[in-house]
Amino acid sequence: MQKIYPNAAAALDGLLSDGMFIAAGGFGLCGIPELLLGAIKDAGTKDLTFASNNAGVDDFGIGILLQTRQVKKMISSYVGENAEFMRQYLSGELELEFNPQGTLAERMRAGGCGIPGFYTKTGVGTVIADGKEHKDFVGPDGKSQTYIMEEGIYADLAIVKAWKADETGNLIFRKTARNFNPPAAMCGKVCVVEVEEIVPVGTFDPDHIHLPGIYVHRIIQGDHEKRIEQRTVREKS
């Protein structure tokens, strides 16, 4: 099966529809699928719901889709870096569902693994637990504790950034740019991946593959800006 596409627009052809639910990888601006986000902007797809840890900045990442009012709802853990996001949220134009970061990651992983819900102690006793099923379990320390149920995420589409892919979609990520990309990839009905380099089958040591190609349906290679959000350095000692 041919998984390699010439560019982001071609890789998304036939997959986009108004009102769809997209899971996106990335943490801050690190490891975000910047080329695919650009192609979604160009396609003009509207009323999108995104499960993504963050919402980018005003002119990069998911922020570019906020400028064009293509996003209806965000499911995120932290959105503090984006002024346009805050403006739309405070004016009621944009829905926001806060998920604790680990709960969001596990919701994606669980959805991709066929697990419709799971129990977690994260958020018990906070607003996050409001309206959710509570249940007591005996924990690993032998003591009974209260947990809440969280649901797995099933996305119509996953958009993901990896470092390298082979021709069958086996993926290798680089450093902390891995972050939400594997769980996001797993929870999509269709997963489109952008990489810095596509290599021939057999190039990777099979023991070194981070995410097997079974989760990957379409691949593109391209040049990435890879913007740094907070450049922090120390004095040379």
Binding site: S76, S77, Y78, V79, G80, M86, F98, P100, Q101, G102, T103, T122, G123, T126, I128
Partner: peptide
């Protein structure tokens, strides 16, 4: 302004 809990609750 509410920015989110990030990973603090976990």
């Amino acid at each position: 302004l509410v920015k989110g809990m990030g990973g603090a609750m976990d």
